[in-house]
């Protein structure tokens, strides 16, 4: 069954379209990133630290100029057009973005004039819901609270699209779960979308519809999470099971005295001897095995 079929009866509007995004730095290059995010879905961007997730987000926000490639954000294809639709865009960035001495009140006072749809009551509710202390200066807040404050500000002007860079990194498990529920509520009407980057994939695995996997500035996969997870299986077996053919096919092979583990394309997992165990994978395992595979390739 193809997913295109499922969605074919609904005219889909893409809130983000990226085609061939490329940006060269002295020691790093982002190459040929392409993806689309339709209205009503959650998309996760995964990959190790330094893979290019933040650079991709910065390009979307026109904080860096791409060397080549097309970006469409909320219909805006030029930097000026993208800036014009900022009211419909809520952003949380990784790292500090407010002056040290600002408290909740100052953040609201500073941002409200810029967003015609700023909802002071909603902002107050969000701050209360997320237990953001009113009297604490921004610099004295924990990393998690700083992220929450940015999230509250991002949601407070009723955006259509949320772009979040590592929103779960500083949050405790309960706050992470609350955030994910909030994001699902956000997209529930089918008109709103979320793009978030993370290297903590466990939460993402369930709620994300699409995933973009980047490693070393290169796009490894873009598509439905289920398809990515269905494309590989985890194989485990004893030392004798590791035939040369299998060894050549396995990604990120780890050998130990009593056996081996590794990743295998799902199709290749069908005709294995019964003694080899195959298991479904998680996004985290996928990143670990692919990462190990890349390291091994470098060493050889």
């Amino acid at each position: 069954m193809s997913m295109n079929e499922v969605n074919s009866d609904v005219a889909e509007e893409n809130l983000i379209t990226v085609t061939g995004l490329t940006k060269q730095y002295p020691e790093f290059a982002l190459r040929d990133i392409s993806f689309q995010l339709p209205a009503g879905y959650i998309m996760g961007m995964i990959g190790p630290n330094g893979a290019g997730k933040t650079t991709t987000i910065k390009a979307l926000l026109d904080m860096v100029r791409p060397d080549s490639g097309q970006l469409t954000l909320l219909g805006g294809t030029t930097p000026a057009a993208r800036v014009a639709c900022r009211d419909d865009l809520g952003v949380q960035l990784d790292g500090s973005i407010y002056p040290d001495t600002w408290r909740v009140k100052q953040v609201a006072a500073a941002l409200a004039p810029f967003f015609p749809q700023w909802d002071a009551a909603l902002f107050a509710d969000l701050c209360q819901d997320m237990a953001i202390p009113q009297k604490t200066k921004y610099k004295d807040m924990s990393r998690g609270t700083q992220v929450k404050l940015q999230l509250a500000a991002a949601l407070a002007h009723h955006p259509r699209l949320l772009v979040l860079d590592e929103p779960t990194a500083g949050l405790d498990p309960l706050a992470r779960d609350e955030l994910l529920t909030r994001l699902q509520d956000f997209i529930a009407d089918g008109q709103h979308s979320v793009l978030l980057s993370t290297h903590l994939t466990a939460d993402l695995e369930r709620i994300a519809d699409y995933v973009l996997y980047i490693r070393d500035g290169r796009q490894q996969f873009f598509g439905h999470v289920d398809d990515l997870l269905g494309a590989y299986v985890l194989v485990k077996g004893g030392p004798a099971d590791l035939t040369p053919a299998l060894q050549a096919a396995v990604i990120g092979l780890r050998r130990y005295g009593e056996g081996f583990t590794g990743l295998l394309p799902a199709a290749a997992g069908d005709d294995l001897p019964a003694t080899v165990v195959t298991e479904p994978i998680t996004l985290e395992e996928l990143m670990i095995y692919f990462g190990r595979g890349a390291h091994d390739a470098q060493r050889n």
């Binding site: 509520d185 994300a208 519809d209």
Partner: peptide, 24 residues
């Protein structure tokens, strides 16, 4: 679909796929 996805804390596309299969 969107209600069930939210309730079960799973993705919309996963739920869509289940419903689509049931319809087929």
């Amino acid at each position: 679909i969107r209600q069930l996805a939210r309730d079960l804390q799973i993705s919309v596309i996963t739920t869509t796929r289940a419903y689509h299969d049931l319809e087929e």
